[in-house]
């Protein structure tokens, strides 16, 4: 029983992280119609940012906040170079471009920082609390708290603020939004930067648990996509729910089946969803205007 609870708790902690990354992914998809395969790479950037800032003896929390800014800045540059020129071309081209960005970022950081994992240790990662026989490191608690706060903040931003209204308008119907004077290009810009910066924080948060290495983003991207497909593309509460579901699937398969096949099982779940519950995932053949 304790083992079961431990698995659930671990799954929830990872799930919070996936939810945070998927949130950025789904926001970007909603506004720019871009499946950003480079999403996880911004987590890698955030993690490296945190690592280097802490090498300079910076406080962990401050480092995380700065890694938000670093990821955002790099996102800004990449948006200008790789996505902004494609805003009028087919969405598939943007997707391929994001693949290129991903390959570029992973291999560049491998070249610059070597593939060896780097250890980030902070005061949270060493301590853990124990309750009912379940262990939980303070770092995981921090992840859950920060993720939930950020998800809540994003939700509030979209539902209540003027910026959020523009974002929602731009994602529903960019042409009409433009007619109403909403600067859709600028909105796309800001959304992209905000989306990848959120992921940068997620990277900073994972750093003390999973270490920092150039290829860490790839599996995060893949998980985030599974989350987003589960929750429905562009659907924010769906992304948060989906994050927890994927976290749980993963920790159950690690606990009861095999750690090695974790990714295989998560992706098989994706296929299952695509086959069984294609509503909202299916192409829009039916609705296409004839």
């Amino acid at each position: 029983m304790t083992e079961f609870i431990q698995i659930i708790v671990n799954g929830m902690a990872n799930g919070a992280l996936y939810a945070l990354i998927a949130l950025g992914l789904t926001l970007i998809y909603g506004v720019m119609n871009l499946s950003n395969f480079a999403q996880g790479e911004f987590a890698m950037i955030g993690a490296f940012g945190t690592y280097f800032l802490m090498q300079m003896h910076m406080n962990y929390m401050l480092a995380i906040i700065l890694s938000f800014i670093i990821a955002g800045l790099i996102g800004f540059v990449i948006h200008i170079l790789a996505f902004h020129p494609l805003r009028k071309s087919e969405p598939l081209n943007m997707m391929l471009s994001s693949l290129g960005v991903s390959v570029f970022l992973v291999n560049l950081s491998q070249y610059l920082f070597s593939p060896n994992p780097k250890v980030v240790s902070n005061s949270f990662s060493e301590k853990s609390i124990q309750a009912f026989g379940v262990f939980l490191s303070e770092q995981r608690i921090l992840i859950v708290i920060v993720s939930l706060i950020l998800c809540g903040f994003t939700y509030w931003l979209l539902e209540r603020s003027k910026f959020g209204r523009s974002v929602r308008a731009a994602s529903l119907d960019p042409d009409t939004a433009t007619l109403y004077g909403i600067p859709t290009n600028r909105i796309a810009f800001l959304t992209f930067i905000f989306g990848v910066a959120l992921t940068g924080i997620a990277g900073g948060l994972t750093a003390p648990i999973y270490n920092v290495y150039p290829t860490m983003g790839i599996s995060l991207t893949l998980k985030a996509f599974v989350v987003v497909v589960l929750g429905g593309m562009g659907n924010i509460p769906g992304a948060i729910m989906g994050g927890f579901i994927v976290g749980l699937i993963e920790s159950f398969s690690a606990g009861y089946i095999s750690t090695a096949f974790q990714d295989v099982i998560v992706f098989s779940a994706l296929f299952l969803v695509l086959i069984i519950k294609p509503e909202g995932i299916l192409s829009k053949v039916q609705g296409e205007k004839v």
Binding site: F37, M95, M233, L270, L274, P278, L282, S283, K284
Partner: peptide, 12 residues
């Protein structure tokens, strides 16, 4: 599936 979903599924 089309476009994005096909991309994600084949990647998977």
């Amino acid at each position: 599936l089309k476009g994005h979903f096909l991309g994600i599924a084949t990647l998977g």
